[in-house]
């Protein structure tokens, strides 16, 4: 039986937006979209890559799901063109302002409605907010095993072996499916570029849009009213730093000056 893999992705404003193009909308207290591109949050793209590699290696059905506005079909189409088989968008105004619990609740209900699942993959953090809560909340909601900072996954006979990054090295961890892994990046899971032919095929695929009512979401858990915390302000900090440039005729001269300076500052 091929594996059923669900990858939860989030569409965000390109986190590589240079500071000169970065602004906070004073009304919404969020990043002003401006003309910046919308992308799959970077670690979510690594998660997609891990899923697609598993599919290529041992056969799997990969479903990409996302909670977001109507424009989120862009990210889901990218996921399809990378190699996901199906994509589902959860788009409902009732979900606006949901906290981590609300989003995890919507994802859990979507995953269950979509059918059987063996592996759920997410990015280890989103490129915009990065509080790393949704994967853990989702695992709690589904009552399945969960490990974060996973870079590689092997699946054999219903057993999952993951490699995860820890502070001083890495760990190999074994778990039973169903299982949720939050994916971090390494040299094995850099997201691929889609081929033109796959982009064309993906463009023709239907992406179903599910609503809160379709999923039977608990109204007590979703939306701004259910959020347990409020983001009351977002601002760009003022940073003042003056860099003293070390001059010299050769790199060796500059390095020697630096060494002397660091010694003078008692840093070495």
């Amino acid at each position: 039986m091929p594996l059923n893999i669900v990858v939860c992705i989030k569409q965000i404003i390109d986190p590589e937006t240079p500071m000169s193009q970065f602004a906070i909308d004073p009304r919404t207290k969020r990043q002003a979209p401006g003309n910046n591109p919308l992308v799959i949050s970077p670690y979510d793209a690594n998660a997609l890559e891990v899923a697609i590699q598993l599919k290529e290696k041992q056969g799997a059905k990969v479903t990409a799901i996302s909670v977001g506005g109507a424009t989120t079909t862009t990210a889901l189409r990218s996921a399809l063109s990378m190699g996901a088989d199906e994509a589902i968008l959860v788009n409902d105004p009732f979900l606006a302002g949901s906290d981590q619990r609300g989003i995890a609740h919507a994802l859990a209900k979507t995953i269950c409605k979509a059918g059987a699942y063996d592996l759920i993959l997410t990015g280890c953090e989103s490129g915009d907010w990065a509080d790393r809560a949704v994967p853990a909340f989702l695992a709690e909601e589904l009552e399945i095993g969960y490990v974060g900072y996973v870079t590689r996954i092997e699946v054999r006979d219903g057993q999952v072996i993951v490699r995860r990054v820890v502070e001083d090295g890495y760990e190999l961890i074994e778990a039973k499916i169903p299982f949720l892994a939050a994916i971090s990046s390494d040299e094995t899971n850099t997201a691929r570029y889609a081929k033109l032919r796959d982009i064309m095929t993906a463009a023709k695929k239907m992406i179903p849009v599910w609503k809160a009512a379709d999923l039977g979401l608990d109204p007590e858990r979703i939306g701004l009213g259910a959020a347990r915390a409020a983001i009351t302000d977002v601002y760009i900090p003022v940073k003042e730093s003056k860099c003293e440039m070390i001059e010299g005729n050769t790199p060796e001269e500059k390095a020697a000056t630096l060494a002397a300076k660091l010694r003078e500052l008692k840093l070495i």
Partner: peptide, 17 residues
């Protein structure tokens, strides 16, 4: 207070509970 947007901004978060 926490960083947001990859360190480009600072956000203030107030728990309701």
């Amino acid at each position: 207070t926490r960083q947001a947007y990859g360190g480009k901004a600072i956000a203030v978060v107030q728990p309701h509970v």
